[in-house]
Design a protein around this nucleic acid. Structure first.
Lengths: 258, 258
DNA sequence: ACCGGACTTCCGGGAAATGGAAGGGTTTGT
DNA sequence: ACAAACCCTTCCATTTCCCGGAAGTCCGGT
């Protein structure tokens, strides 16, 4: 006998399931087929198919020649309106380019989202140390220069959450002891800059500084990433701090203007 | 007697209604309150409230201090995965910067979405002519340098759709005659570049050239925007064309590599 | 020709979405 | 000081619209 109709059982809010399909995309998986998406979200093929159809009609997703789903231009347009994404990026870019041209090193701009760092911009590239990060990518708060700055100025609740949980190790020098990290964060608050010495890769060192909004809240962080042994953190920190302050001022001016 | 419950009447797919809320955002309205969103989408306050709650929980939207809704970082992260958005942008950026530094003029990068141009990048700024466009913004295909290039290489169906419809006028020199535009598009295909002479504003002129993917399909366009009278289109076109070709090659190389 | 895999369409039952009403908070005007 | 106007949030009885198994289609491989 042909079983038809919904076979009972809670499914969850509809919009949330649609968003779950979008959430399946990431730097590691920028393009996926129907079956891959259904597998990742755990929904039946026909359900995924119908929801994906709606997302494509709207322009959130596009299908390439092979039939795979990719993120659509419409979603990029929306993303460009995010104040902490493109907005921050555009205001800070001239200053980041200055810093990159003066030092000839990698410059990174990042914000905190929950208990992770999200990289908003990364320039410098060619001659400098290769870095693991990617624009739009995420990383642990505990290891990078930008991460330490953002963690040091995060709400206590977030700090406890991060320090209380498992702290990921990347190299032999990654600090994974909660007490030692607590002391480092205190230093960051006192000094106004952070140092991550070979905590992410053994050949790189980064120095970060906080960017504040017009009310003094830390909303982002800049960092310089250099090859280990090239320069001392203490010659880099004034440059990074100066740049961070210039960006802070530009943000405040922007708020007043528009 | 207290009327309770859904009062009947077709409403439309749920996911679509959620997306309609996102669609209300745009360059002109980057932040909106609950009531504004409800008004724009035509849905009841309580419905908008519930759907917005889901979108905020997921991270698509964020609420600022005033309680207004803004586009969230999560959506920006997703947008960064769009091949025709951030992907194109990042590959092309070095070449655009070269072109901008050599000419000291505005450089624009754009793609076609339906019957409009979407600007993906715009650099040069300081000393150059102020331009109306914005990264992530849209414009008519018929007036700008990039638009003429993209229209000239669009499917016949799209061309007929645009030329058959109402052609928007921006200045006294905007070409709004379909036959004249058809001749201009033929020239663009023959010459390999487009000229928009004071068609958008009376003080600016732009020269555009096509960017092709590895199969020779025109997927984007670059343009130089200069003050009228500063330089002749024919001295600019070799620069723009060379830059466009370099970007085309970089795209093809990128496809082969990753 | 047969098989395995991926994609698309169909449609009846019932879970999940809907939106009027009520309540609380804040600002504006008299 | 009071009221009026506005905005936001929560509640819940009533259906509507979504769900997903099954069947159909279209590949490329053996």
């Amino acid at each position: 006998m042909a079983r038809r109709g919904r076979p009972a059982g809670p499914t969850g809010p509809v919009l949330t399931r649609g968003l779950a399909l979008l959430a399946a995309f990431g730097p590691a998986r920028p393009a996926m087929t129907l079956s891959q998406l259904a597998r990742h979200t755990g929904m039946p093929l026909s359900t995924a198919h119908r929801l994906l159809g709606e997302l494509v009609d709207w322009g959130a997703l596009e299908r390439d020649d092979a039939g795979s789903y990719r993120v659509g231009l419409r979603l990029w347009e929306l993303g460009a309106l995010a104040p902490r994404g493109q907005g921050l990026r555009e205001r800070a870019l001239p200053f980041l380019e200055d810093l990159s041209q003066i030092t000839r090193e990698n410059v990174q701009l990042a914000v905190r989202e929950g208990t992770e760092v999200v990289f908003v911009e990364r320039i410098g590239g060619s001659g400098a140390v290769p870095v693991l990060t990617r624009v739009g990518g995420r990383f642990a708060l505990t290891a990078t220069g930008v991460g330490l700055v953002l963690l040091a100025h995060a709400p206590t609740e977030v700090q406890e959450d991060v320090l209380g949980g498992r702290i990921e190790r990347f190299t032999a020098r990654t600090v994974t002891d909660a007490e030692q990290l607590r002391r480092m964060l205190a230093d960051v608050r006192v000094n106004g800059f952070s140092i991550s010495d070979r905590q992410v890769t053994m050949d790189a060192l980064s120095v970060g500084a906080p960017i504040q909004d017009e009310r003094g809240q830390v909303v982002a962080a800049v960092s310089l990433v250099v090859r280990h042994g090239t320069a001392s953190p203490h010659t880099l920190s004034p440059l990074v701090r100066t740049s961070a302050r210039a960006i802070s001022r530009a943000l405040a001016a922007g708020y007043r203007a528009g």
